[in-house]
Design a protein around this nucleic acid. Sequence first.
RNA 1: GCCGUUGUGGCGGAACUGGCAGACGCAAGGGACUUAAAAUCCCUCGGUAGCAAUACCGUACGGGUUCGAUUCCCGUCAACGGCACCA
Length: 800
Amino acid sequence: MEYNFKQTEKKWQKIWEEKGTFQVGTDYSKPKFYALVEFPYPSGQGLHVGHPRSYTALDIVSRKKRLQGFNVLYPMGWDAFGLPTENFAIKNHIHPSVVTEKNVAHFKEQLQSLGFSFDWSREINTTDPNYYKWTQWIFLQLFKEGLAYKKEMAVNWCPSCKCVLANEEAAGGVCERCGSEVVRKVKSQWMLKITDYAEKLLNGLDDVNFIERVKTQQRNWIGRSHGAQVKFKTTAGDVLEVYTTRPDTLFGATYMVMAPEHALIEKWQGSLRNMDQIRAYQEAAARKSDFERTEVVKEKTGVKLDGVCAINPVNGKEIPIFISDYVLASYGTGAIMAVPAHDERDYAFAKVFGLPIVEVVKGGDIEKEAFVDCATGIMTNSGFLDGLSVEEAKVKITQWLAEQGVGEKKVNYKLRDWVFSRQRYWGEPIPIVHCPKCGAVPLPEDQLPLVLPDVDSYEPTETGESPLAKMTDWVNTTCPCCGAPAQRETDTMPQWAGSSWYFLRYIDPHNDQALASKEAMEYWLPVDWYNGGMEHTTLHLLYSRFWHKFLYDVKAVTCPEPYAKRTSHGMILGENGEKMSKSRGNVVNPDDIVNEYGADTMRLYEMFIGDFEKAAPWNSASIKGCKRFLDRVWALMDICVAGDIRPELESNFHKTIRKVTEDVEGLKMNTAIAAMMALLNDIAATGSVTREELRTLIILLNPFAPHVTEEMWEVLGFEGMLNQTNWPLYDEAKCVDATVEIAIQICGKVRAKMNIAVDAKGEDVIAAAKAEASIAAQLAGKTVIKEIYVPGKLVNIVAK
RNA sequence: GCCGUUGUGGCGGAACUGGCAGACGCAAGGGACUUAAAAUCCCUCGGUAGCAAUACCGUACGGGUUCGAUUCCCGUCAACGGCACCA
């Protein structure tokens, strides 16, 4: 009997939908399992073969957990605000919500054709006012707690289009739309104080099960360092404050560097004799992004301030001050003390400007390069610090600075506050009213959601304000505080807002009293397993942890960390090994694969393609192997006879059950599939299969290929639906074979093999190995120095 | 530049905690079935030499530790992800 995947897959998808098979009950007595994948941005291009990699993997986990008796929540939704939809709307004069609706419908149809066990009754959409009501509510709580504030920030500005550009739209310093040069313009922006949570975000990592590289990257992104803040007096009278992780090297500070944007420059205007030169340099620096500025390879540039000097507090020496773009305004105090002998960037700068390089830590050769190692060095040329180790010197100088009142111990973070404003239309309106008397006033909660009004044009305004600024009817309102005429905030939120808390909404998606009910939160939180891309590690994942920790502090959620476990999948590349993209012409459409091979084959192939965590190139030819495997499993029904698992296959079955059970937990789907393929080969070699063998095999395969296995279950006449049966158990004792083949090595090289009983004693095995004809011959005339037996693996005889 | 990661046959990949490198699959070659093709089934398949048994080489490159290294350490090269307004 031929297997018709088209008909069968549709049949089961319909049954699952009609019966609500994967709808999650509210039976809170069962153990729960909450599996989460990153919800997609519904782009106009439709689903990409990259999306199902993550979705299939956790679908397999979810289906297996259900078979193991868990109450599983596996939801899906749409992260639908964002730039591409807005740009499409501008170009084609279609409302973004219309575009979104169409894209969502397309995505949903594509996802459903792959047979994912999502609970569609809990579908959410970040652009739905009933959803973003709560996104706005969270913003209000942040505002009330003082974590949302306004600040002047530099943004990318296209002077020709007169609009703010996203970094992506300003790649290479050129406007993506018109090609003109992008400048940095200062604008007042809403900011979120994520830095207040730096310590909590760091410490929380100790309590969660995230893959190590995600933790490392988050730790580095937060970038905690211990050092000192030091005050340098200047000849202008003001104090120039710096942060340093190397206060021990203070005696070696021979000059200072400020970021070109540093506020003191403006204050010192009167004293500075080379203001023209300074202005020119500031303008040049404004055009560069932070990471262009910090590149080490390029020649260091800068301008010496003519008219103001600093005074080194340890020795009273006057030292020059420079501005240079390698110092960033956004890190530390925006100024540094430069110690060229012990910092590579300072060294390079000092060489260019001919500044003195004073060695204060012995151990390197400062004629050649900066000596940066602080583990081994001994202090020198440093007065009362001489002879101390770097660590001792750090402690002593920090104490001294504190005693003198010119510095203090300081913990610093690389993490910067979150720029939360966008001058765009397609985002959540920020629920704030600006009153001339009361200032920024939060909208009362009973006025939420503040609905995004319809506008005629989605183009930003001449001044770079959001398109909402043109909606005077909407903008003009009254102050919720004093009733006087006031104006609404016209900036919108970034796309990160809606995705920072979406997992909370799935657990109680229709609640209009709260984000989710306490009861639902207590049962479902935290997310048990969250899978997503590595590219979201430092932004989305950190932002959502921040919001969650905040919500925990204001008692709006019931646990301190949102995600108990985080894993990451690799990208699926084009057949040529490059990233899939329209412009490269190497995009594979999942619809084509489903049509030609079926959803089960597609799912199996995406899991078999390689190591889940690594990038893997698509290969059309290889898909056939997965189709062939499913066809061979189907064909087993032709040779099926009554009976239990046969003794000669017993250990194969137990080993395979163990392998699949463990590999699914470890996201090693490729080796789980390989194990099932090997089992099929072993069964096929016997020429028949028993009912019980087939039953066990198709339960194991069900999470991977749910349609064909469900159909086989029905054809074979087993009771009920396969997805409601139990996952098979294995017996550790039955996974072992009686004999095992081991290798015999001489000096680490395999020279022979032999079969031994699994429980054979070491000395007997070694004796047997030496008795082996070819081994005996090669050992003749040599002295045995060492004999090693690794149980069940090998014997190694070292001889001379 | 900074942070993180990766590098194994013609290809995707496998290999426990330092223990037989190449599981499983694709492609390729040979054979069976067929009027023929597709499908299916069987065999071979890292390189060099050899009829063969077998020997030597081989996990990006150069060193090191070890009885034994794809695995650990040091260095080099190449590729990929992120760098805060793409998501």
